[in-house]
Amino acid sequence: MNPRRLTPSMSLLLAFEAAGRHGSFTRAAAELALTQSAVSRQVQALEALLEVALFRRDGKRIELTAAGALYQHELAGALARIRGATLQTISHRSEADTLHLAVLPTFASKWLLPRMGDFYGRHPGSLVHIHSRIVGGDLSQGAQDMSAIICAGSGQWPGYVAHRLLSEKLVVVASPKAMPAHAQVSVQDAARQLLLGVVSRPHAWSDWFASVGLVGSSTLRLGPSFEHTAHLIQAVIAGIGIGLVPRILVQDEIAQGELVTLFEPMESGRGYYLAYPTHNQQLPSLVAFREWLLSIPFPDS
């Protein structure tokens, strides 16, 4: 069959779809900024091409045939998808220098945002919208509407490009005011403290104690859990309990004497990554941000 017959011109399809939706050549003409006779001729041309009657005509009244109704229904969905794709493409053009970035909340406030001034100084025409997201193993479920994401995990996400930024090391922290003898604290002493955690890592403490040779998590004093690590850090500073947190997120508090570390850091097996869908890798805004971020010398976490 002639391919042209299967792919009528857009002008014919638009005229037919509008006429079928309105049930009127006149109203379709008004929508399309055409004359009534032009719409009628285009519909007739489409019927001649398909060799199928799409309308029943009774004087000035028109009514879709069964074949016409089915065709109009299918075309309406197809045209909506075309319009949506066009709008999306236009938005990429208009937002060429705009990046929608999902970031772990505490990482954003403690590490990324203090450095964004340098990025804007190097790329004054860029705009980065930062969205706080705690994303699990499936990035497509938590960041499908984002240009890119900074997250923690294994770095193995199908359909995503992932750049490792740094490895994650967990450290036990306490308030020096609440625990003045912190230098002499043993693992057994730590197990008797109120253990603060984050909701996204419910087994962090049991895993840590197992790694240092203390088994039997039923004896642990598990305290409140927090949605954001920043809240946990503030609770530890306030002396509510001790916390197990990524060391990169408490370096300032340790340097300022608000927190002290009780034991050597422990590798968590996870890393921090910049990740993004493969189809986004050439976005100008992402290219600029990626090059800037990967140029930063990350400290030993």
Score class of each variant (00 low, 15 high):
64 L>P: 00
134 I>L: 13
220 L>I: 06
270 R>N: 15
210 A>T: 15
253 E>T: 07
144 Q>S: 13
172 V>A: 01
176 P>D: 01
52 V>L: 10
52 V>D: 09
97 D>V: 05
81 R>Q: 13
114 P>A: 06
226 F>P: 02
156 Q>R: 14
220 L>H: 06
136 G>D: 13
262 L>W: 01
261 T>N: 02
96 A>C: 01
300 D>Y: 05
149 I>A: 06
294 L>A: 08
212 V>A: 08
77 G>Y: 04
25 F>P: 01
165 L>H: 08
280 N>V: 13
11 S>E: 14
131 H>L: 11
41 R>A: 12
104 L>Y: 06
33 A>F: 11
243 G>D: 01
61 R>I: 02
131 H>D: 15
301 S>V: 04
171 V>A: 07
199 V>N: 12
227 E>C: 10
289 F>N: 10
103 V>W: 00
179 M>P: 04
257 G>S: 02
282 Q>G: 12
83 R>G: 06
296 I>D: 04
58 D>S: 12
95 E>V: 01
59 G>E: 06
259 L>A: 03
159 G>Y: 02
177 K>G: 11
120 Y>L: 04
279 H>A: 15
39 V>H: 00
155 G>Q: 09
178 A>D: 00
164 R>K: 15
244 L>D: 05
182 H>W: 15
148 A>G: 07
124 P>S: 08
295 S>T: 10
115 R>I: 04
282 Q>A: 15
155 G>Y: 09
163 H>S: 12
288 A>S: 13
19 A>C: 02
102 A>P: 01
173 V>D: 00
196 L>K: 02
144 Q>G: 14
137 G>R: 11
233 I>C: 01
45 A>K: 08
111 W>L: 09
145 D>S: 11
45 A>N: 10
145 D>P: 03
3 P>D: 03
211 S>I: 09
191 A>M: 03
97 D>L: 11
91 S>V: 06
71 Y>K: 04
